[in-house]
Write a protein that binds this DNA or RNA. Structure first.
Length: 548
RNA sequence: GGCCCCGUGGUCAAGCGGUUAAGACAUCGCCCUUUCACGGCGGAGACAUGGGUUCGAUUCCCGUCGGGGUCACCA
C-alpha cells in the first residue's frame, strides 16, 4: 500500500493533472500583457473597496493589452445569495467595468479558461488534490470539528500558537494503511496539506505595492478540500490562477498575511507563482480613529450608494484612480478631456497605507465631471437615473426639448457651470423653470429691496418700459441699468460702493428683485439665459402674479 | 496575545540624507462679477514620539506610542 493507493481510494475518478494542463494552455498574449481578475464570492454586494480593486486590475490589464476576468468564488454555500452573481455583474456594468472574460450571468460565461465558477470546478481541484496525495504532500484528516475545537482550546490555555501543525497535526502521522482503513469503515475526513514549512524560518517576498515583506514560513497543515468536496480559498486560488494563467493577483491586503501559505502552495503544486499586489483598504473616520469602510455601518461602502445618489460612474472611477496614483490628478488637469485609457497607472506607486474615504472630494470630482458633459449627456444620464430613483424629476424631464434648454444654460463654454455634483441635486436646481411648479410657490424671499410696494414698482416699470425678450444680453442688461437709474438706484455697483450713502441700492439689488420674482431664488445661473429659456409668456405670467 | 503592515497640514498626498517640506480637496481673505456656481491671487495649517548613526536626519537603524490586517472545513 502506498500513497498512490490512498489517492485512488479517495479520488477514484479524478483525471490526471496533465489533462488540465493541456486543456488550459498558456495564453497567447504579447510580452508584458497582464492577466488579472476579480474574484468575489456571490453575495451580490459590491464593496467600494472591491470596486477599487476592479478599477485597478482592469486598468492594468487594459493598458498592457492583457485580460481581466471575473471568477466567482462560491465554495462556501453559506455565503451564497440568490442572484448574487447577477448583482455583481450589474454593479460592474453600472460603472462601465465589464470584464473581458468570465461569468456574464448566473449561468453563462465567456472565455476559454472556464468554468469561471468554482463550484463547477470541483473535479479540477480534486485532480490536483489527488496529485498532492500521490506524492505524500497531502493527506486525509479524520479529526472532527469538536476535536479541533478542543485542541485549539488547549493551545490557547497553554498560550501557544493555535493551529494544525507539528505535534498537533495528529493525522499527518497516520500510515497509509491506517488511513485507508479509516476510510473503508466510513470515517468522515477532509484533505490537508502536509506543510513542509518551519515557523522558525523566514521567507522574503516582494509585493508590488507593499514592497519587501518578511514572514515566518507556513507550517500549518491547512485544509485544502473540505467535507463537501469543495476546496478552500487558498487551494482554489493556487489551482485557478495557475490554470487561468493569472500573471498578477491584485487583491485586498487582508490577504497579505496568507502569502507564505500561497507561495508554498504554488511551489508544492509545481506552479509558477504570479506577482502579487496587495491593495490597502479604503478607510473611514470613526470618532477619531480609522476603520475599514463597513458594509453594515456605512451606506457609502456599497457601490449601489453611488448609483442611487446619482453620482456619475466616471466620477467614482476618477476618484478611485486618484487614490490609486496621486499623479493622476495632475495628469487629469493637464489632459482634461483625455480618455482614462491614456493614463499610465502604476501599481508600485500605490499607497501602502489605507486612504480615508472622502465624500467631499468625490463630489468635487463629480462636479467637474458633470461640468464637462453636454446638455444632451446630462439629460440622458439624469433621465436614466430618474427612471429608477426620482419620479418627480422624471416628470420634469418629460419635455426633452425644454429640459435641454435648461440644462444648456452656461454649459459648453470655456467656464462651464459647476453647481451640480450628482443627479439627486438636479431636481432642485431646475424645478423653478417649470411654471406649474413655480407658480404654486408663493414664498418669495427678497434681498436688500424687500418692500412689497417697491418691488411692485420695479417690476411694473420693467414690464412696461424695459422688457423685450428679443434683446441681446448687453442690451438687456443696459436696460436693467436704465431701470435702476430711473428709479433712483445706482446704475453701477462700483459707483455705489464709492458713495454708498448716495443711493438706496444699486443695479445688483434691482436685478435681485427680478431674479427672485422670476425664480424664487437669490442665487441662480445667469438671469439673462434663464429668461431666454423661460420665454416671454412665462416671464410675464410670473411678474404679473406679483404685480397683480 | 503571536505574526505582519503602516504613521508628512483637517483629508488625499509628493519628497527617499542637505528642500523656503510640492500639489489637490476642505477652510479663511481679497479680486473678478447684476446673484450664485466658476475662475484668479493670497493666508493659516504637517514630518507621532524618544534614542541612536551621520558634519547633517522627514528621509537610515532601534525602542515607545498610535492605527490597521491576520491567526476557520469564510472568502
Amino acid at each position: 500500500m502506498n500513497y498512490k493507493d490512498l489517492a485512488d481510494l479517495i479520488f477514484p475518478n479524478a483525471k490526471p493533472i496533465l489533462y488540465y494542463e493541456e486543456k488550459y494552455p498558456e495564453r497567447k498574449l504579447e510580452e508584458g500583457a497582464i492577466v488579472t481578475r476579480f474574484a468575489p464570492s456571490p453575495t451580490g454586494f459590491v464593496h467600494l473597496g472591491s470596486l477599487y480593486q476592479v478599477v485597478i486590475a482592469r486598468k492594468m490589464a487594459k493598458q498592457t493589452n492583457g485580460v481581466f476576468f471575473l471568477r466567482v468564488e462560491d465554495t462556501d454555500q453559506k455565503r451564497e445569495v440568490e442572484n448574487g452573481v447577477t448583482g455583481i455583474i450589474n454593479s460592474l456594468k453600472d460603472f462601465g467595468l465589464t470584464p473581458d472574460e468570465g461569468m456574464t450571468s448566473e449561468i453563462e460565461e465567456i472565455g476559454d479558461y472556464g468554468p469561471y465558477k468554482q463550484s463547477l470546478r470541483k473535479d479540477i481541484y480534486q485532480a490536483y488534490a489527488k496529485y498532492l496525495i500521490e506524492q505524500g504532500k497531502a493527506y486525509p484528516c479524520f479529526c472532527s470539528t469538536e476535536e479541533l475545537d478542543e485542541m485549539r482550546q488547549k493551545q490557547e490555555n497553554a498560550k501557544i500558537r493555535p493551529g494544525y501543525y507539528g505535534v498537533w497535526a495528529h493525522c499527518r502521522n497516520l500510515t497509509v494503511e491506517e488511513a485507508i482503513e479509516k476510510i473503508k469503515v466510513g470515517e468522515p475526513y477532509i484533505i490537508r496539506l502536509k506543510s513542509p514549512g518551519r515557523e522558525d524560518k523566514k521567507i522574503r517576498h516582494h509585493d508590488i505595492i507593499k514592497g519587501n515583506v518578511e514572514f515566518p514560513e507556513n507550517d500549518q497543515d491547512i485544509v485544502i478540500i473540505k467535507a463537501d468536496g469543495l476546496p478552500t480559498y487558498h487551494f482554489a486560488h493556487a489551482v485557478d490562477d495557475h490554470l487561468m494563467h493569472t500573471t498578477h493577483v491584485i487583491r485586498g491586503d487582508e490577504w497579505l498575511s496568507s502569502i507564505p501559505l500561497h507561495l508554498q502552495l504554488f511551489q508544492m503544486l509545481g506552479f509558477k507563482t504570479p506577482k502579487y499586489a496587495h491593495i490597502s483598504p479604503i478607510m473611514k473616520e470613526d470618532n477619531g480613529g480609522k476603520r475599514k469602510l463597513s458594509k453594515r455601518k456605512d451606506p457609502e461602502a456599497a457601490v449601489s450608494y453611488y448609483t442611487e445618489e446619482g453620482i456619475p460612474k466616471e466620477a467614482v472611477v476618477e476618484y478611485l484612480m486618484n487614490i490609486a496614483n496621486s499623479n493622476f490628478e495632475s495628469w487629469r488637469k493637464a489632459n482634461p478631456n483625455a480618455l482614462l485609457d491614456d493614463f499610465d497607472l502604476q501599481l508600485n506607486k500605490m499607497s501602502v497605507s489605507g486612504a480615508l474615504f472622502d465624500i467631499i472630494k468625490i463630489l468635487d470630482i463629480s462636479k467637474n465631471v458633470i461640468s464637462k458633459f453636454t446638455a444632451e449627456e446630462v439629460y440622458n444620464e439624469a433621465y436614466n437615473w430618474a427612471k429608477t430613483y426620482d419620479a418627480e424629476l422624471l416628470k420634469l424631464l418629460d419635455d426633452k426639448e425644454y429640459a435641454l434648454k435648461i440644462l444648456g444654460i452656461e454649459r459648453g463654454n470655456a467656464k462651464p457651470r459647476k453647481d451640480i455634483s450628482k443627479w439627486s441635486d438636479l431636481k432642485n436646481a431646475i424645478i423653478y423653470m417649470y411654471d406649474e411648479e413655480f407658480l404654486n410657490n408663493n414664498e418669495l424671499e427678497y434681498g436688500k429691496i424687500n418692500e412689497h410696494e417697491e418691488i411692485k414698482k420695479i417690476l411694473k416699470l420693467y414690464l412696461q418700459k424695459y422688457f423685450d425678450i428679443n434683446d441681446e444680453k448687453q442690451a438687456w442688461f443696459d436696460k436693467i441699468k436704465d431701470l435702476s437709474e430711473e428709479l433712483g438706484y445706482a446704475r453701477e455697483v462700483k459707483m455705489f460702493k464709492q458713495e454708498p450713502e448716495k443711493w438706496p441700492g444699486h443695479v445688483g439689488d434691482v436685478s435681485t428683485v427680478l431674479r427672485v420674482s422670476l425664480t424664487g431664488r437669490q442665487n441662480t445661473p445667469d438671469l439673462y439665459e434663464i429668461m431666454q429659456v423661460l420665454g416671454k409668456e412665462s416671464i410675464e405670467k410670473r411678474i404679473r402674479k406679483i404685480v397683480k
